[in-house]
Computed example of a mutant assay.
Amino acid sequence: MSTRFVLNQKVRIADRDAPGHVRTPVYARGKEGRIERVLPRFLDPEREAYGVNEGSETRLYRVRIKQSALWPDYDGQADDVLELEIYEHWLEQVGDHSDTEGR
């Protein structure tokens, strides 16, 4: 089964208001990172939280984001990263996925 995003692809976490139960942290919205791992599909937790159990699934990805991109005043090591598991409907493509800058 094909995936929308591939390993090392540059992505942006959507920057949108989403009332209610979501699994995408506010501090990561609008930030760019890279796909670190493509994970299986799971029941959509945003639909499940409201009892809309229709069996819809969505792909999960582990996204690696530089700490300095998340926190402007971050004073740790330049190569420190945070890895977040983000559902596919929260991710947007950025540029050409063959771009490997920032691996």
Rank of each mutant, 00 (worst) to 15 (best):
Y50L: 13
A49H: 10
Y50T: 15
E54G: 09
R47I: 09
G55A: 04
P72H: 05
G51M: 02
D75E: 13
G51V: 04
E54K: 13
Y50N: 14
E57L: 06
Y74G: 10
Y74K: 14
V52N: 12
E54S: 08
G55I: 02
D73I: 08
R59Q: 15
V52Y: 10
I65S: 00
L70T: 01
Y50I: 15
D75I: 09
L60F: 06
D73K: 13
L60T: 06
E48T: 14
G51W: 02
Q67F: 06
K66V: 07
Y50F: 15
A69I: 10
V63W: 00
W71L: 10
E54D: 12
V63R: 00
T58A: 05
R64C: 04
D75M: 11
R62H: 10
S56Y: 04
G76I: 00
E54N: 11
A49I: 10
G55W: 01
W71F: 11
G55N: 07
Y61D: 03
Q67W: 06
E48L: 09
P72N: 06
R59S: 11
Y74V: 07
R62S: 15
E57V: 05
Y50R: 15
L60E: 06
I65F: 01
R64M: 05
A49V: 11
G51Y: 01
Y50Q: 14
K66R: 15
K66H: 11
Y74P: 07
Y50S: 14
L60H: 04
G76Y: 01
L60G: 04
R62N: 13
V52A: 08
R47C: 07
N53D: 12
V63N: 00
R62Y: 05
E48S: 11
R62V: 14
V63P: 00
G55M: 03
G51A: 02
T58C: 04
R62D: 15
R59T: 15
P72T: 03
G51T: 08
I65P: 00
E57N: 07
S56R: 14
G76N: 07
R64Y: 02
T58H: 00
R62A: 15
T58N: 04
T58R: 01
E48V: 14
G51K: 12
R62W: 06
R59P: 02
W71E: 08
Q67R: 15
S56I: 09
R64E: 07
D75N: 13
G55V: 01
V63G: 00
L60I: 06
V52Q: 11
Y61T: 06
Y74C: 11
E57R: 09
G76K: 04
R64G: 02
S56G: 07
S56T: 11
S56A: 12
K66L: 15
S56W: 03
Y50V: 15
K66Y: 12
A49D: 04
T58F: 00
G51C: 04
D73C: 08
L60W: 03
A49N: 08
A69Y: 08
R47P: 05
G76S: 05
E57C: 08
Y74R: 14
V63Q: 01
R59F: 02
D73E: 07
R47Y: 06
N53I: 05
R64K: 13
P72M: 08
